[in-house]
Amino acid sequence: MTSKGDLTRSRLAASMLELIQTSGYSGTGLNAVVEHAAAPKGSLYFHFPDGKEGLGVAAVDLAATQFEALIAQAARSTDSAAGAARAVIDALSTIVGESDFRWGCPVSVVALEMGAESERLRQACATAFESWISPTAALLEAGGVDGAEARTLATVVVSTIEGAVIVSRALRSTQPLASAAEVVAQLIEQRCRPAETAR
């Protein structure tokens, strides 16, 4: 059973995550987080005694978990790695578009803003990206791509998606994500096809 304290901590992390997406890490103040979460101010320092940095790490961890779940759901919805990649990018395109291009990837926001300032936040972002690269590599391996190549390709896929989200927000168009979906799917199919033919 989830305790009241755990619920408050989760609510604070979720609010921090949402505000990072709309205001950036630097533009998100602790008072705004407390107000958004409808939590007592004292609870913030109780759950996050290290203040904003600790709350930022919790928000990045939450984003990592959410996107990892999206990858898993996409993998279950199709029988190919290319199809899973398309499903992930389509879902992200919907999120970005329906938010009127205000939401993107909070992990990239924190990495760009704080990667050189806070080793703890940089490491949290690195861990988040790794949590997306590893399952993507596993999907590619399941599709017949060699382990080392699968890791390299998975890194390219995640990096391409991250870039497409940023460009889509800047252009206020989901076309960059649609283009990324097409190119990523083709790339995966090209890498998987030789292995499938060999079998």
Rank of each mutant, 00 (worst) to 15 (best):
I20D: 01
V165P: 04
T8W: 05
R76F: 09
S118K: 12
E98Q: 08
V33Y: 15
T28L: 01
S15L: 13
R11E: 13
H36C: 11
A142K: 13
L171P: 07
A181Y: 08
S134N: 05
R102C: 00
P176A: 04
R169M: 09
F101V: 05
E196L: 09
F129L: 08
R102V: 02
G42P: 11
G24P: 03
S23I: 04
T8Y: 08
V165Q: 01
A180T: 07
L17N: 13
A164G: 00
S134T: 14
S99E: 07
A59F: 07
L62E: 07
I20P: 10
A195R: 03
A170F: 12
P106E: 04
E68K: 10
A84K: 01
V165C: 01
A69M: 01
F48W: 12
S26T: 13
A198H: 04
Q21A: 12
W132I: 02
E98R: 00
A148V: 15
S23H: 09
A178R: 10
T28N: 05
A75S: 08
V60L: 03
V158C: 07
C192G: 06
R9Q: 09
S3E: 08
S179I: 10
E98W: 00
G147E: 15
A180R: 10
F67W: 08
A198D: 05
A58K: 14
L70G: 01
E117Q: 12
A170V: 14
R9N: 07
T174N: 01
L177N: 00
A63W: 10
T28S: 03
L112P: 07
R172I: 03
A72K: 11
A87K: 02
T65W: 06
S168N: 05
S10E: 11
T22R: 07
A63P: 02
R76Q: 13
G97Y: 03
D146T: 12
L153W: 01
A74H: 00
E149T: 06
G29S: 14
W132M: 10
K4A: 15
V158S: 07
A81E: 09
A14H: 08
F101G: 04
